[in-house]
Nucleic acid binder design. Sequence first.
DNA 1: GTTAATGCAAACACTTTGCAGCCGC
DNA 2: GCGGCTGCAAAGTGTTTGCATTAAC
Lengths: 142, 142
Amino acid sequence: MTRHGKTLDKLKEAGYRLTPQRVMVLAALAGKPGHIGVDDIFRQVHASYPYIDVATVYRTLQLLKVLHLVTELDVGGSARYELIETEVHHHMVCRNCSRAFDFSPTYLEEFHHRLIQEFGFEPDLEHFAIGGLCSACARERR
Amino acid sequence: MTRHGKTLDKLKEAGYRLTPQRVMVLAALAGKPGHIGVDDIFRQVHASYPYIDVATVYRTLQLLKVLHLVTELDVGGSARYELIETEVHHHMVCRNCSRAFDFSPTYLEEFHHRLIQEFGFEPDLEHFAIGGLCSACARERR
DNA sequence: GTTAATGCAAACACTTTGCAGCCGC
DNA sequence: GCGGCTGCAAAGTGTTTGCATTAAC
């Protein structure tokens, strides 16, 4: 079973149709590690099926989001998506090279608890991503 | 001196012209506490000077951003701006009522240092804002 | 055969840009 | 008066929506 096989099953179980377009969008999501932009998904699917429309990609992603099969991040402007796999994790996105790196939720535990305790504010950390400069780009810049 | 008087001075010192439009945009920023959207600024200025164009508001904010006189946040879609005052602080933005609350950078210190030490990743925390549910809305929801 | 999903086109919200005229310095 | 700034209009992104046709079930 491919990396997105389970997601296809869940779509079907939820009563949605398994159209080739949806399968291709999921394949694109599964094909690259980390989060990926709508344009990137569109380009990939379009390469093998030129009739695909961006609207379909958006609608598919919307559906997958509602069903909690993908997570959506919006780091600076456009949205990016990622298949939900086993573990929750967060992202560091380099402002220079746009690469993304994962980090564990434990890094935010202290922060999370302090906001709750001191302000009663429950932060949304499910889709948390932080911009910055990655080590490679920081080195290069010197 | 008004709340944005210093900012006006800095603009002038930097060699930029103090046009009425710029003064009005700054007055709008100073008029409301916390961060504020472009549409909000535009509406306020437009009320007293109907010839103002959104482009001017955008250009002014762009300039103020480059000069580090305002900070820009983008929580979900459109950008929001705030005059830079004495202290650096971050924001909690309620996903329900859209109100913003401040918190000190000390809350993120541990997180910040761990990303640097363990990944060599330098996070951009200057414009940091986190979405979530504020205590009032959480209470109401029950 | 039903009905949901697609492709197409158009609209949408937000932001940027080119340009001629204007006005702060 | 010079050059930066403005208003206007137009274009550029990224995203959503209405609708007739198509295809998954």
